[in-house]
Design a protein around this nucleic acid. Sequence first.
DNA 1: TTGAAAGCGCTAACAA
DNA 2: TTGTTAGCGCTTTCAA
Lengths: 354, 354
Amino acid sequence: MTDDQPKSITAAAGSEHHRPTIRDVARLAGVSVGTASKALNANGKLKQETRDRVMTVARDIGYRPNDMAQSLHRTRSMTVGILSTDAFGRFTLPIFQALEEEFADRGIAIFMCNATDDPARERQHLDQLLGKRIDGLVVTGRRADKRPSVGPLPPNLPVIYVYAQSDDPEAVALLPDDEGGARLATAHLIALGRTRIAHISGPERFDAVQQRRRGYQSALAAAGLAEMPDFFVSGPWSEAWGREAVEQLYDGRAAPPDALFCGNDQIGRGAIDALRERGVSVPDQVAVIGFDNWAVMAEAARPPLSSIDMNLNALGHEAGRLLINMISGEKAHGIRRLPCTLVPRRSTIKESPR
Amino acid sequence: MTDDQPKSITAAAGSEHHRPTIRDVARLAGVSVGTASKALNANGKLKQETRDRVMTVARDIGYRPNDMAQSLHRTRSMTVGILSTDAFGRFTLPIFQALEEEFADRGIAIFMCNATDDPARERQHLDQLLGKRIDGLVVTGRRADKRPSVGPLPPNLPVIYVYAQSDDPEAVALLPDDEGGARLATAHLIALGRTRIAHISGPERFDAVQQRRRGYQSALAAAGLAEMPDFFVSGPWSEAWGREAVEQLYDGRAAPPDALFCGNDQIGRGAIDALRERGVSVPDQVAVIGFDNWAVMAEAARPPLSSIDMNLNALGHEAGRLLINMISGEKAHGIRRLPCTLVPRRSTIKESPR
DNA sequence: TTGAAAGCGCTAACAA
DNA sequence: TTGTTAGCGCTTTCAA
């Protein structure tokens, strides 16, 4: 902000700019480069006075060591790559957030890449990350399907799949325990005394839909409840489908459900709306629970929607720690599923819990 | 510079692993390093046969140049930093996405950092980014308030604030034109023949609330419509507030509004719900428009909610291009606001537009 | 206690 | 047409 000379806008004209090097520090402090290095890194033995002088000069001229030069002869670049194979979405966000914290705490920088369903782009990103000599790689994505293993990668590069699966069974992957979460939801409804529990879910091709259905079934079985064949319905992940499903399940049926386990919160919310508009009381006549614990949805429902939280933040933290351990040489392999949590709200429990 | 460097990870045990260098390529191809370099970079003049031999060897041993070594004697690191001073949120996401595309297309890698309202963390991240010798910096954040200028930074480091403002008036900032968007919304309602237009907005301390109110007022004025003093109400950004505001505006009022301009889509959706439950027809009796064009909200409303799109994706693209130009030496300064767009749906227009 | 110098992987200027 | 070499900024022996 000192000089404001309007230069001609030729490319790269003004950005000529010398950042201080350790050589500058050394020269100004009147010592050798080696000495400066020792002082700056608190290494070796130096006279306190020399040390101080170097540090002062460094601070004064705003010296900041060049990490790239450092990494050049360290084995480690202190960077990791995060490759998102799905767009940056609602589910990947809490994971990023957690990863970021975990890595930042260790001074590890994150290269963020996105290659939504574009293998060419993915290769390109990967190539770039390898050029940056990342110490580890996180692959996130939609959990729906197993994805082809990312690669080829240099041997020994730690890779972890988060909220995504590789088709390589040895690959390290971290996923939420959908089945357990569904069991949790269903068991919650059962514990409330409900016996006619329907499951309104998303498209059947989703792995999560299959998992959750299994959890639903196993919870019913564990409670000795019969599974009604037409109490499982599948459709889009939308509020509209939640409303429509309620029509299907309640229109002219002698013994309609007394509880609904919905595949996500949007469906759950649609269901609640439809029930209310039919004059069915939630939770008195029908208890409703969703999945995802998407706050903005669940809390805006009337009544607020109980839900299952996948703890994606915890998942991300665990993934970060795991990758860091792998970078330090620890071995790991296979899929690990982390538990979901029940978040009761008034759509299942009359009194707001707290 | 306080020396509170994060502890490094314990030295890798088994991950001792030599990635091929250009020297390896040269040796295996039976040429000198310089020749290998020329071949790999398609520089200088070489016998085609030599060139091929080098390339073949490089491919075979999986050689990938070390970007850090390259950057060491280029002026450019081919990386930029994105510092999010708000969490990774709904608004910053489309911006990230756009930035990512813009940079990836140019082979620029992105360091992603998050420092939510924590100046210490911010400094730490910044220090790290400077260590990485980033070529440019994007600061994103909540647009609510002007934030203190990030710094201190080396002179000539291009910095751009996106969806965030610095208190330095010279700083380059890109923001959505909230006022224009509000004008668009209000004018749309006016064009439908509405004359009693209320504005249900968010908390007054938000800059966006002020801006949008101004747009609302100026559109009214431009149409020669009087502004009713109690037709502006302010509350939280929630559906519940939207519902409550409708009570306030319609309960026992002789001449209630015939249109609602809502400060965001959640408020808009709450308002629609409340109107429907009062038996007021939308859009026949009251037209409703929101702000943000948050698809999942707007489309799930009954009827679907017209809204104003801030075009955050376009904002991100523009920001990316702008930063790239700044990196190439172009000068820029000051705030620029990008236009919003009207997205009509059935809450204002009877026939679904298409 | 400090300095000199080799080398991390790469490019580019200069020699051969 | 190819090889040699001097750095880029830094750390780390090894000498002084």
